[in-house]
Each structure stands twice: as C-alpha cells, then as structure tokens.
Nucleic acid binder design. Sequence first.
DNA 1: CTACGAATTCAAGTTAGCTTGAGGTCAATA
DNA 2: TATTGACCTCAAGCTAACTTGAATTCGTAG
Lengths: 141, 141
Amino acid sequence: MKLLDIGEVAKLSGVKPSTLRYYEEKGLIQSLSRNGLRRQYGPGVLEQLSLIALGKQGGFALDDIAAMFGPGGRPEILREDVQARAEDMRRQAQRLEALSEMMHHVAVCPAENHMECEKFQQLLRLATRVQRRGAASKAKS
Amino acid sequence: MKLLDIGEVAKLSGVKPSTLRYYEEKGLIQSLSRNGLRRQYGPGVLEQLSLIALGKQGGFALDDIAAMFGPGGRPEILREDVQARAEDMRRQAQRLEALSEMMHHVAVCPAENHMECEKFQQLLRLATRVQRRGAASKAKS
DNA sequence: CTACGAATTCAAGTTAGCTTGAGGTCAATA
DNA sequence: TATTGACCTCAAGCTAACTTGAATTCGTAG
C-alpha cells in the first residue's frame, strides 16, 4: 500500500502540515507508521480529511467530529443522539438554502436597508420557521 | 413604538446581554436610544438577530455578516461578490444535506468503521463532488 | 559521506467570539 | 425617600482551532 508523508498529504488535501499534526493529536486522523521520525499516512486519510471538512462546515467541533466519525473505534456514542443531530443537520441545510436565496436577492435588490425589503423579510421568515431542536419557538396564541 | 431593554431582548431572542452589547459594538445591531444609561432596542432587532444567527450557521464571520446585512448602510460591498457567495452557500446547503444523510446512516449502520461502509463512502463522494469555488479539484484524467 | 531539505517536538503565540468581574449608575417599586 | 435589581463600562480572561519558531533529527540526492 502506498504511503504518503505529511507534505504530500498537505499538497493533496490543501490542509497544512501543522494542522495535520494537530488533527492527529486530537485523534481525527492517524498515521499508519513512521519512516524514521516521519509520519506515514495511508491514502484513506484523504477521505477522512474530506469528512472532517464536511463536519466543520456543518458547525461541529473537532471533538464531536472525532466522536461521530473518528477512526479510533468510538465506544458507542448514542445512536439516537446521532439520529437527532442528523435531523438538525437536515434543517440546517434547509435554512442555508433559504440564506442562499436571501443573498442572491440582496445582490440585486435596490433597497438600501434589507430589512425594509418585503421579499427579504419573507425569505427570512421562511428560514427561521425551520427551527432547531431546542430553539424557543415563540409563536403567538 | 415599543422599546425593549437589553434584558427583554435577551429573553425574547435567547441571546445574552453580554453578547448583545458585543454585537452592538461590532455594528451588527443598534439600539435606538438610551433610558438613562440603558440601551433601548426597537422590535426589529429580533429579526436582525435571526439574520445574524443564520449567517453564523452559514459559516460567516461577524464582520462579514455586518458587511452584508448590517444596519449601518454599508458602502456597497460588491454585489457580484455577494452573488458568488450566495452560490457557495447553495452548494454548502447541498453538502450539508448529504452530511445529514451520512449521519442518519451511521446511526443505523452496523459497520464498526464507517469508512469501510460502501454506502457511507458513496454519500461522502456525493458530498465532496459538490465542491466550493476555489477548492482544488483533483479529478483524474 | 556530506549536505540539504523536509520532518520532528514542544512551548508559546494568535484570532474570533464571547464571558466574567469589579466598581459604578440609575429607574422603578415599596 | 430608600432600596434594589437591572443596567452600565472597561479590562481581563477563556476556549477552540490553529500557527509559529527554535532547536533538532534524519532520509535521500549528489
């Protein structure tokens, strides 16, 4: 199996060596061996890094990512917890879709204050109607 | 017009007073007046706060949020720039949708290492195929 | 075999985004 | 009018996620 040293992984993934060492320390990735002092990574590390990037975009802390997706054979973080977080994530994706539309709109809207634009407000309400678990919903009557 | 003081805004929005003061300092929100020393906010601040929360979920820095959506009559941050960011946001929403599916899957998948699960890998590829602007795409031949 | 460049460790520094605490002000209630 | 509790300012502190730098080791090309 072809092994990569840290510089190659950095070049292929766009993640700096210092960050890779940091991730390894945190248990997010692992090097398979050493060549002298040098870490040797398997090719799978690249997919692992994509996954980490994805998790970060989803707003997860590195520790959470390690707990959900880490290579370190996690001792069963509650599946129902992951299930619930997955639901949250779906809702977040919806909200961001709405945000995308809002941004597309402000890019062309002539209103000087966005909050005065009817369409903008409407999109914002749409986005915020898709609430998170645990978010206080103050619907009237 | 009904004015709210900082504690009420905090209660209604779930955002702490210290954070509200911090946001105001940064130009993300504004208080309309003072009652003695006390800040008085208009009701619109609540929507502004939803917008800020949304922007944060989208991964924007507070300064970026202020620049795009701030109440301070921004001196025209390039519309085409916002347009491009809106596109990125749409793609991010798609990626997070895929992430949501991955999480739903890991919650039920029996595989001890996710990366060995074919379905998981497939979803990951789906997610990472929806690249960002500026992300190095190393598709082969 | 030697030199170079790429890695190594470890401690300390940086940035964003808040939070905390001390010390003081003031509006509203009793 | 006297308290009290909510607010104020300002400086300092905190956490996550990295980055930087100094001093050192080592694999590989010449």
